[in-house]
Each structure stands twice: as C-alpha cells, then as structure tokens.
Amino acid sequence: MKESQITLWEEKAHSGLLKNDSILSGLVSQMRIATMADYQTKTNLTSIGITTGDYTTQGKLVIQDESKLKEAIEADPQKIIDMFTKAAPTGTKVTAEMSGVGIFQKLTKFTMDALKQISEKAGTLTTSSDTTADFIENSLLSDTIRSMKNRETDLAARLNDKETQYYKKFTAMETAINKMNTQSSSLSSFMN
C-alpha cells in the first residue's frame, strides 16, 4: 500500500466502520422520538424535567429540572411508571410516535428491530457469540462474498484464456523467427 492509502485507511479506522450507518442512525432517531414524544397524553420526558442536554452530550438523558420531576412523581406516580413501562396492546405495531406505550417497550422494540437488520446485513445470528460461525446464506454479506468469489472465478478464467492466447502467439512468433533464421542461414551460405 502507498503512504496515502495507509493514511486514508487509518482515518477510516479512526472514524469507525459504523459511522453514518443507516441502521444505527435510524435507531438513534427512533429512540430520540420515542423518549420525547407522547402527543396525546402530553406526558413525555421533557414535561417531567428530563432532556437530552445539548448537542455535545449526544443524546444522553439529563435531569434538567429536578423539582419538576419530583412534582410529577408526587402528583401521579402511576402515570410516570406507565410512561416508562406500559405495554402496547397485543398485536399492535409499536411506533416511535405511539401514545400510551411505555418508553422502555418502544426502545426494546426498536433495538431488537435494528439488531435484526444488522444481523441480516452482516449475515450472522442475533443470538450467537461464536465469531467463527458461518454466514447465513441469504444475508447481504454472504451475497457479496458469493458475488466476489464468482467474479474471481470469472476473472481467473479470462486470465487463463488470455495467457493461452499469448502463448499461442508467442509460439507462432518463435516458429516464424526460427523459420526466418533458417532461411537467412541458407541464403547466407548460398551467397558465400
């Protein structure tokens, strides 16, 4: 590798291979909406004094107004418990904007969905920690590897065909040169 390529590779490694990954950025977006939105009941983290802080904290939850939180807990503790833990009705599709469903249920749903998407993309099982396991056959990564192997086989066959073609040309050229040398030698002995 050239020095410039090494530098670019190191920059990519330092920025992280998952930087700007659509699955993870979608998960973060859904998590933010889920923790901050409950439009029907108007009970969300902001209404009880919890915010995500400024942009430098990258979404970390912060108790901004402790008195607001204490008041909300004292006024209706069950409402606060439900805000975090209430389950969705059976068979209901959980969305980030859904009202009346606990934040933890939303976060669990979105995290599991993202894990499934990453698993499908990477081609590994979601429950396996075996790093030597084979890739799942119908995953994006497995398809890419298969495609690369097929391309490698095709390119090797083309290389072999080109090599054979050049050997034939080289042999024909060698034969022509030998024939010319023989004729040249005969003419030179005839001239002497």
Rank of each mutant, 00 (worst) to 15 (best):
M83C: 07
K86N: 07
K86R: 11
A87G: 05
A88G: 00
P89D: 09
P89Q: 14
T90D: 15
T90R: 15
T92V: 11
T92P: 01
T92D: 06
K93Q: 13
T95P: 11
M98K: 08
S99N: 10
G102L: 08
I103E: 04
F104D: 08
K106A: 03
K106T: 00
T108I: 08
T108M: 09
K109N: 14
K109D: 13
F110G: 06
F110W: 12
T111I: 06
M112H: 13
D113I: 06
D113N: 03
I118T: 11
I118F: 07
S119H: 01
A122M: 08
G123N: 04
G123Q: 05
L125V: 00
T126P: 13
T127S: 07
T127L: 00
T131H: 05
A133Y: 02
A133D: 10
F135D: 08
E137V: 06
N138L: 12
S139A: 04
L140P: 04
L140N: 11
D143R: 00
R146I: 03
S147V: 04
M148C: 11
K149C: 10
K149T: 05
N150H: 08
R151K: 13
R151V: 07
E152Y: 08
T153M: 03
T153R: 06
D154N: 15
L155H: 07
A156H: 11
A157H: 11
A157W: 05
A157R: 11
A157M: 06
A157T: 08
D161F: 02
E163W: 00
Y166D: 01
K168M: 10
K169T: 03
F170Y: 15
T171E: 11
T171H: 05
M173F: 14
M173Q: 04
E174H: 13
E174F: 12
E174T: 09
T175F: 10
A176V: 09
I177D: 10
N178Q: 14
N178D: 15
N178P: 05
M180L: 07
N181S: 02
T182L: 14
